[in-house]
Design a protein around this nucleic acid. Sequence first.
RNA 1: GGGAGUUUAGCUCAGCUGGUUCAGAGCACCUGCCUUACAAGCAGGGGGUCACUGGUUCGAACCCAGUAACUCCCA
Length: 871
Amino acid sequence: MEIPSKYEPQSAEAKWYAYWLEKGFFNSVPDDRPAYTIVIPPPNVTGVLHMGHMLNNTIQDVLIRRARMRGYNACWVPGTDHASIATEAKVVQKLRAEGVKKSDLSREAFLEHAWEWTHKHGGIILEQLKKLGASCDWNRTRFTMDEKYYEAVIDTFIDLYNKGKIYRGERMINWDPAAKTALSDEEVIYKDVQSHLYHLKYQVVGSDAFIVVATTRPETILGDTAVCVNPKDERYKHLHGKKVMVPLVNREVMIIADDYVDMEFGTGCLKVTPAHDMNDFMLGQKYQLEIINMMNDDGTISEAGGMYIGQDRFAVRKQIALDLDAAGLLIKQEAYSNKVGYSERTDVVIEPRLSMQWFVDMKDLSKPALDNVMNDNIKFFPPKFKNSYKHWMENIKDWCISRQLWWGHQIPAYYTEDGHWIVAKSLEEAQEKCKSQYPDYTGGLKQDEDVLDTWFSSWLWPIAVFDGFYREDEVSYYYPTADLVTAPEIMFFWVARMIIAGYEYRGELPFKNVYYTGIVRDKQGRKMSKSLGNSPDPLVLIDQYGADGVRVGMLLSSPAGNDLLFDEGLCEQGRNFANKIWNAFRLVNGWGENTEKAKPRGSALVAVQWMNARLNQVIDQLNDDYDKFRMNEALMNTYKLVWDDFCAWYLEMVKPPYGEKLDEETYAATIEIFEKILTLLHPFMPFLSEEIWQTIRVRQEGESLCLAQWPVAIPADENWLNGFEAFTESVIGIRNIRKDNAIANKEKLVLKVLKQDGDLSVYHTAIEHLGNIEATEMCDEKPAACYSFIVKGREFFIPFTEKFDVTAELKKLGDDLAYTEDFLQKVRVKLTNERFVSNAPQQVLDLERKKEEDAMHKIELLKTQIAALAK
RNA sequence: GGGAGUUUAGCUCAGCUGGUUCAGAGCACCUGCCUUACAAGCAGGGGGUCACUGGUUCGAACCCAGUAACUCCCA
């Protein structure tokens, strides 16, 4: 059977993924093996696969596949998130395109559209993950608005409410005037913008004097209820307790004094607008100031503003500046650059706004979550993220969980017409509670219109995917999960809150390790985004380079927590690697029908011994890399094992001379080694490794590399490892002589070796094989008229050919001599340093002495060679 | 404004407890090869003031202090 010289991924990928699914290798049910669980960070239900998902899910798949091979009951739970703001925005947009406004629809009608959209687009992303080779247990696919999941979210709300951890309060919140919803702090993005600083005149009541206030938002003077100065500020001391006129508005407000004001900023006078600025709100509460809400929920000026009613905030900013100027109240307007909060979802400027919202009291809840990360019960990789986690958790604010949306989990609170509320699981339950709490009330009850923050459902993910709020059988087996792989961007949104929920509802950590991936950027370091158009389509990449190639490309240069500068060249490298393995397979496979019963050749004997020692060494190294979550190093070590050790050395050593057959014993050993290598490769390159594994030996139906045992390392034989180094150096020595003297590889040479202790004779046939040496002669004395090279103190000689150039050879030896003498000099400086000799540990001293000795020996050899040539 | 981090080859990064032949890898680059598994390959090679300035030490890429540049997070 002819095997193509290029690996063709497409057919192998389709074939083996279907096989894996058909045999149910990825499905997990509790049994007596230890569990190893990963829950996927649920992508947005209507999202499409992007490069960040590729990286994230490749890492998870590597971890879960290795765990499966190590005998764990591996369970990777997939699923999607309802993503309330993002999904609702998409549905609204789609309806708008069809000429339907959300406000024209009833809640029920809108939700019908939303479900329709979800069913149409939902799960596309999961299908894409299958192309990548993700070994999820697809029977367990969950959605954050599944019936049971929905119930868990509502029950959690009710539970926290009953525990007094959820309260309703008027707070300054981040308001998105486009989406008309409150946003959490984390959903606000601060951007540098070029704006203006307006200097406004506030006349002191009962005097001709005035003070000047600098502000970037002149329109908010409509809501001013005080002016504040620093009590230490000498410029304004005489004005404490006086009143000023708000310009244009002509309202008299107090001048208050508080440390909060920065004397250096602007004029040192701060206008206070409690309804429209977080810090002003704080001042307002402290000094019992009037709160004037001068803005509507869509960002237009309200009745309370008194003027410009119904006009947009930014239009008013321009107009009021003109009007102030006309009235002589604008002193100056200077260019100013500051940071302004924007909505992550709609990209409009956030408006701080007072409103009634639901909050979770985070103070007590967050304590165990902080402690158990700081004491490493939950480990972060890389650990540097503990710092920012700590900082955030120690300054944690209450969590605003209500969102003015329809798509999501509707808040289970019911209001009476006279403003009381009852938290209950259903209207019926609420009515009953109402009867006992408010026996005289006869009116109806109306459920809160708002839904819960998306993260209020996803923080339950590691528990809820196992229905852990309602039954114990699965959650007690799979929880706590093993590793969580996610982006540092959502450390606070999600990771911290899952830890909080874990301790609150299971009394236990939700996962043992958190591996933070970096952000995938383009070659110029820009974040990949749709709007920049700099993100390749992952499916196109898989098509071009194969899933294995792309997986390798993603992992090659992405240490934990570091951003990955994505370059298609990396996928190409991955594809080339796959092809390299493929060709090793072709070579070995060809030997299968071409063996004979014979003693292994000397070079093959040596090769098998060394390769096994080397394999053991690398397995150890890989396990260590994995333990430390150094995925890219594990991959690179596997890469070098395959390419350098197995292909460049091992296979060349066992390869029979042209036209000859391979002995059966070496063939069997080679297959075993290859199988082990495929096992090590499988987490990274599941398709290619399975394809070869299935062909390299006759397999039974139902067998798969997925289930093969991860090799156990036995201590590597150091002798083989050390001796091999001398061997490779010898071969390289011969190659260099060929290169330097233009001796063709095809030309057979004679190698002469000086008889001495500890020779390399066991490697001689291997050296002959790889160096194309026709005979190795042992000599008692140094032979004349020879090229020579030195390996670890041993001299090798190759008789001159007709191309020999004395001058060149002398120069080379001379350079080498100069270098070695210089080196010796440096070592001796160290060794004659009294303080070094008396302070350095014995080990280091011995090493330096060994260096000295070796260098002296080498110098002697070089000098003799030069003398011989110069004759 | 507050906090954290980074700076080592052209690029991306290792360098773990200060000491393993004057600092390593992969890619890229240069030279020579279509050698019967693989040109998506083989063989060989060049490339570094370890950001800078001081300090500690017998010894510093590594520890300490300062300076500079960049990045991220938070307000």
